[in-house]
Design a binder for these strands. Structure first.
Lengths: 342, 342
DNA sequence: GCATAAATTCAAAGCGCTTTGAATGAAACA
DNA sequence: TGTTTCATTCAAAGCGCTTTGAATTTATGC
């Protein structure tokens, strides 16, 4: 059933029916009701493509499948998506996930824009001089970046305070007596990873504790890499008395490594993990409960969707920058260093 | 830049340019080249909405945000999506995620169909008499179901052998001497959950071991529920000597509960988990390595995307039914029951 | 009771593409 | 050379909607 048919059924013009359905004021109330009922009855709903063509707006925002396979759809991505989806549903907006073909990421962004399949784009996991961001700015296409870059031209972004999180965690560990502190985080090049390392270094520097490069690891987030890196770290003599883990998955592996070496968690070796708040993996439920720097990636997604919709509606991009603070939540996996038993 | 502009630039008609771009044979080779070059140069790419309106095809498949919040975008969903996305990229198809508004799920499906935003739909997490499936069959809209229902009318589906997986795991446990075996799985009502329970019961029945209803738990998949349910199970006297966990997350909680009670995993209490193969959570890396029934949910997603594309291309739906076998992989978390050390 | 304003409704144009049916020019045939 | 055929190209119609500008009906003021 199309608009024409519906209009004929009702003995009205397409114009009136269209207006009735779209809530225009110049339609008689009785007529509007009648139209609504008929639409309901016949299960009519406008052909989205015709509608979009006519109004020049899509009602969807896009996101490209994250570039490297390892990052693609990790648990972080899915939590983030969940936040996006939740917010977008309020505006009845769709979320379009488009693949990167031929590994031509920039081209994929360009095509997504010029084919008018989406009203705006969300960019995640940026590097410091992210070329996708540069391109989108240049193209003047609405987008919001999750994370930050060093690119100066105005654009909208939302990021958490990664440097602050790791600075705070590191300082805390120093405060309670640790001197050999290691970190296992995500791959270098990504802004969040660089920022975290910066925070970590700043905290050490402030207390004049030298940075031991062996104590810094960059890997993707999984229990496996957490395990391997922690094993490596603990094999040094003296080994670190505290480990910062970039994600909950990493932390699971770190826990495992500490146990398998026979150390007591939270005593001989402390662990602080960054927690993106996964509904199915709760830091306070671990044994021992895990000390974390916490920030909900889902909430970030939700807010980003909101911002993008605002931008699409014409909000100027200049002032849309948010840095979210990260909470340090002390639990049992961290404590003053205790010399090894034995 | 639109087709008209591009055509004018080239001194050609829109017809010819369109045909050149879409690979029609009746275009001079030299012309085709020239057009391709110009398109590249001007960054032209057809307005997707106009194109779709004209050809009546969208180039996207849809999926609605899973219904209940708990299930929405768990780690399973994201792995599944990942598989879908991977396969769809081969066909340059988009994946459209549409929200369910006002909690009107069926209405959301109807609107998705009648608004012609997608060429086909993927349905997940069905119940035994899933109304969405019934509706889609009725509407004759292309779709593939991940899972199964008891609905008889022909429709395409792909499922793993959930009953077989749990039957096999249970039988194995019985074989090595267990008599009190518990299961913690997903919510009742979902087909996969019912099938698993069926498999479990069949295995017990076959050996004439009575089913203890206290030993069956249905909860959503998270480490927290795994922990709580396992705690409950282990508080019975006598307690189960083996626990089947419906997901890796659940298993993490179960591990924790067993340890916190002071039992030795794989001896006093065995655990077998169903593993959907998460790249960031590896069963063989746990300590002890976890015995699992394994089936990749990502591969399932990939295959389902493939099937849906075939259906959209006209493949009849009658014969598209796949049941994937599930492997039981023995590792250290299961073994013959050992009487508690005092 | 008539002119004017306000409330409704409508016909037709346009969104940017594909595709039908016709036109053109070149090559092949007789 | 005139006629066919084939290879290319084109003009125009149509996809289903929104929206402009005009037409009609109804309400209001004097």
């Amino acid at each position: 059933m199309k608009l024409k048919d519906l209009a004929e059924q009702l003995g009205l013009s397409q114009t009136t029916v269209s207006r009735a359905l779209n809530g225009y004021p110049e339609v008689n109330k009785a007529t509007r009701e009648r139209v609504a009922q008929a639409a309901q009855k016949f299960g009519y709903s406008a052909n989205a493509n015709a509608r979009r063509l006519a109004i020049g707006r899509v009602g969807a925002i896009g996101i490209l499948m994250p570039r490297d396979r390892s990052q693609r759809f990790g648990p972080h991505t899915s939590e983030f998506f969940s936040g996006l989806a939740e917010r977008l549903s309020l505006d009845e907006m769709d979320l379009l996930m488009s693949p990167v073909v031929n590994n031509d990421e920039l081209g994929a962004y360009r095509r997504l824009i010029s084919s008018k399949r989406v009203d705006g784009i969300i960019v995640t996991g940026p590097t410091l001089m992210d070329e996708r961001v540069a391109m989108l700015i240049e193209a003047k296409f609405p987008f919001v970046l999750h994370g930050r870059t060093n690119i100066q031209a105005p654009h909208a972004w939302l990021d958490i305070d990664n440097a602050g999180a790791f600075r705070q965690a590191t300082s805390h560990l120093i405060d309670i007596g640790h001197r050999r502190i290691a970190m296992i985080d995500g791959h270098k090049g990504h802004t969040f990873s660089e920022h975290r390392e910066t925070g970590y270094r700043e905290a050490l520097l402030e207390r004049r504790i030298p940075v031991d490069p062996r104590f810094i690891a960059h890997e993707h987030f999984s229990d496996e890499t957490g395990f391997h890196e922690a094993q490596r770290l603990l094999s040094y003599d003296p080994h670190p008395t505290a480990i910062l883990a970039g994600s909950m998955m990493t932390a699971l592996g770190v826990f495992r490594a500490i146990r398998s070496k026979g150390y007591e968690l939270g005593k001989e070796v402390s662990v602080i993990a960054h927690d993106d708040v996964f509904p199915y993996l709760n830091a306070s439920n671990m044994v021992p409960a895990m000390t974390t720097t916490r920030s909900s990636i889902r909430s970030a997604g939700s807010r980003i969707a909101e911002l993008l919709v605002q931008i699409i509606d014409g909000e100027p991009v200049e002032n849309i920058h948010e840095i979210w603070p990260v909470e340090l939540i002390l639990r049992q996996s961290s404590g003053p260093p205790v010399p090894p038993r034995r």
